[in-house]
Design a protein around this nucleic acid. Structure first.
Lengths: 227, 227
DNA sequence: ACAAAAGTGTTAAGATTACACCCATGG
DNA sequence: CCATGGGTGTAATCTTAACACTTTTGT
């Protein structure tokens, strides 16, 4: 499970400290084995609940890739099916449950050094983040990083944090408020953050986003032939 | 493996007739088990070679999803990692090799009746086709359905066949010939098909397509709130 | 000459970008 | 009053869609 959230202006991922070999004491992505009678999605939901105490409500869980290299686990051949989960910055009841010492860690730091995470989890995290970035372009899932009611600026900060870019506040505002089914006005206004109070919105019913939000400001198309 | 091609104006998929139970005599997608020392991509390449006699050249192979429901194989718990392969309409040397009687079957017919394919292969095929459709929008992979040199019209027919839509020939022509790195002029001209002879192109070096090709003519955005 | 396919031109509508500008709030 | 953030207006540029129109070929 690559459980992502936006916390303290950074994309963060849930990691556990390994309590036994191999990779004793190293950081790893949470996960586990399939149990009898479960399909893959159910197993992912169960693992998520065990690690975070959260049910599938308010969390978007999605399979994104399988990993099956022969040497990825020194104990033997293991095939893993990886899932990304996007969720708001909720308190994680690590104290209760099986208390596996799950904690948030900024993604940027983990991606810098491929040797921090155990197994091939650096690669898995990297793939998951890339997957999540694409999802924000084409779907309305950015709202799953937000609390139930949020402002347009909060939503923009999610995009800016996950993409690592800056977006024009006025154009972003128009785009998301006009996209059909993306945002529903909640009626109330947020507390002031030093200026005019912003309108609050809830996530709408749309899942696909059209037109898509562009990730880079006029990124160059494909590969060039003559630079 | 969901091996797709465009043949006789239809999207077709490589199927095998099962030679032993379960599902004896029924149609199924080709596939097999991981061997020692292989990672998932290598296993997919090997299976593709065994079924079609073709190497990874001229074929695009890509993992798209894992399947692990507890009852998907009556013999016991099997987790499958599914791959799509896109290839041109090449003759398949089924006679040689392990002669598993692989053959092309139109996708449309197979998707109509969920009970034709063995196991959960109807679902897998359906997911693969959806994945392939999305890939054509955002990447230049449509060229992998074409022979080494092809005309713009041939390429357009690939899109029309896979998407099941009709596209405006003139607008399509402009779009793909201007997309940077998509098509490279091959110099020659194709034989006439009843009219003016078309220029031949080869696939360019770009892999991503920007701007993306739109699948539906002005498809309605997301979900509507008030119909 | 004519039909059919290939490819170019044109125009209106929609999207994107950049940025000026007004609105509302707290200090 | 005024700095700060929220939100709307506007014009240049790009993209799309629809379709008229020219070019090239086989019959």
């Amino acid at each position: 499970m690559v459980v992502l959230t936006v916390r303290e202006h950074a994309l963060q991922v849930l990691v556990v400290e390994r309590a036994k070999p191999p990779f004793f004491g190293r950081l790893a992505l949470p996960g586990g084995f399939l149990e009898d009678g479960e399909n893959l999605d159910e197993a992912a939901q169960r693992e998520l609940a065990e690690e975070t105490g959260l049910a599938a409500e308010q969390v978007h869980v999605r399979q994104f890739r399988g990993y099956g290299g022969p040497d990825r686990d020194p104990r033997g051949r293991v095939v893993s099916v990886a899932y990304v989960a996007l969720m708001p910055d909720l308190p994680i009841p690590t104290a209760g449950g099986d208390a596996r010492a799950a904690r948030w860690e900024p993604v940027a730091g983990l991606l810098e050094d491929p040797a921090v995470l155990a197994f091939d989890h650096h690669r898995i995290l990297s793939d998951a983040v890339e997957h999540a970035r694409d999802m924000l372009s084409h779907t309305t899932l950015a709202t799953t990083f937000c609390p139930p009611e949020f402002t347009v600026t909060q939503l923009r900060e999610v995009y800016e944090t996950v993409w690592g870019t800056e977006l024009d506040p006025s154009n972003f505002h128009r785009k998301v408020t006009r996209a059909d089914g993306f945002l529903v006005p909640a009626g109330a206004k947020a507390a002031s953050d030093g200026g005019r109070r912003a309108n609050l919105y809830r996530a709408g019913t749309a899942t696909q986003l059209y037109p898509a939000l562009l990730r880079e400001h006029h990124s160059k198309p494909g590969a060039r032939q003559e630079p």
